[in-house]
């Protein structure tokens, strides 16, 4: 559910492998045809998509951590069941996406190992901590809301397996956003302390959520190829504006204040927001956010702790294979 600024291609198809095939490929894209795994594609297209889809998958898996933090402390059984289902969905989304990435020729194991080695990125938003229960509401409402904005256009992405995975993901995503908004609504209609908790969570998450859409258009050098290949259909700033315009009225409904005193509505009806702190964004992406080390350590521990299960399952499958081979020989 979480893609963010991962849609940056190398823009490196300059060494055209085969001009005629490349032209044919582009013609298929221009005709809105879907590219399928065994079709010919430029190496840079394959590389860009492998990176984008695998990083999207890593984001889903790492994204389970901040919310998983609250499963045992959810305020009621209803909230607990819903949160558990949501975190399970994120795991499922990660798996659909790894499967889509694998169709491009890298194994899931290789991709996961790259992430565990700290060599692959995931969405910067998951490097922020979930300090209170209101953070869970805010993540559903805003982080999933931003992810939906990003993912709906990806349902029409030129690469078939990615587009199909996104259709499944988007279908499941709206429950996430609604459950988050409902948590916020309940807090905002509660005691003064509960409302203050909701406002505090919004204050902390607002700017990092706007950063989820990636660098501003004039600073993002790589978008051109992704746009040409119809991997990306809207620019970062376009999606960010759409998100802000959709979200401000929801915050008003909740009675919460968006932490941007400079924000104003222009004549066209769009909400103009103040400058985003891109230094913070770069720092978090570079590994210096509040939770980067924790997140990676938690993923590594889970992976290592699960190693014996994977080994045992493989050994068991092998034993059964040998036994049935023996029986067949008798």
């Amino acid at each position: 559910m979480y893609t963010q600024a991962l849609n940056t291609s190398e823009g490196d198809d300059r060494h055209i492998e085969d001009a005629a095939r490349a032209a044919q490929f582009q013609a298929r894209i221009d005709a809105d045809e879907r590219i399928e795994p065994n079709d010919w594609m430029p190496a840079a297209y394959r590389k860009t998509l492998t990176r984008q889809i695998s990083q999207h998958a890593h984001s889903e898996i790492v994204g389970m951590l901040p919310e998983g933090n609250w499963i045992t402390r959810a305020p009621s059984l209803r909230r607990k069941a819903a949160l558990l289902a949501k975190v399970q969905d994120e795991c499922g989304h990660g798996l659909y996406l790894y499967a889509a990435a694998e169709t491009l020729g890298s194994s899931r194991e290789e991709l996961v190992d790259l992430m565990l080695a700290g060599k692959a990125k995931y969405s910067s938003i998951f490097n922020y901590p979930t300090l209170t229960w209101a953070d869970i509401g805010t993540i559903g409402w805003l982080v999933d809301g931003a992810a939906i904005m990003n993912q709906i256009p990806l349902c029409r992405c030129s690469y078939g397996p990615y587009a199909r995975a996104m259709i499944r993901v988007c279908k499941e995503e709206s429950f996430h956003q609604r459950q988050g908004f409902e948590i916020m609504l309940t807090l905002c209609r509660g005691t003064d302390e509960q409302k203050a908790m909701a406002q505090d969570a919004l204050n902390r998450w607002w700017w990092p959520v706007l950063m989820m859409f990636g660098p501003p258009d004039q600073a993002s050098q790589h978008s051109d190829t992704s746009t040409k290949w119809k991997i990306k259909r809207f620019s970062n700033d376009e999606l960010r504006q759409k998100f802000v315009d959709a979200t401000v009225p929801q915050a008003q409904f909740l009675g919460l204040t968006v932490p941007d005193p400079g924000m104003k509505q222009n004549e066209a009806g769009n909400w103009e927001y103040s400058a985003i702190d891109w230094v913070e964004f770069k720092q978090v992406l570079a590994g210096n956010g509040p939770c980067n080390r924790d997140r990676l350590a938690a993923r590594r521990k889970a992976h290592e702790d699960g190693a014996w299960v994977r080994e045992a399952a493989m050994a068991y499958a092998e034993k059964r294979r040998q036994r049935s081979a023996l029986q067949a020989a008798e």
Partner: peptide
């Protein structure tokens, strides 16, 4: 509907 990894048919 998609694919997945598993060591055997039951899993």
């Amino acid at each position: 509907v998609g694919s997945l990894h598993a060591t055997d048919a039951t899993l």
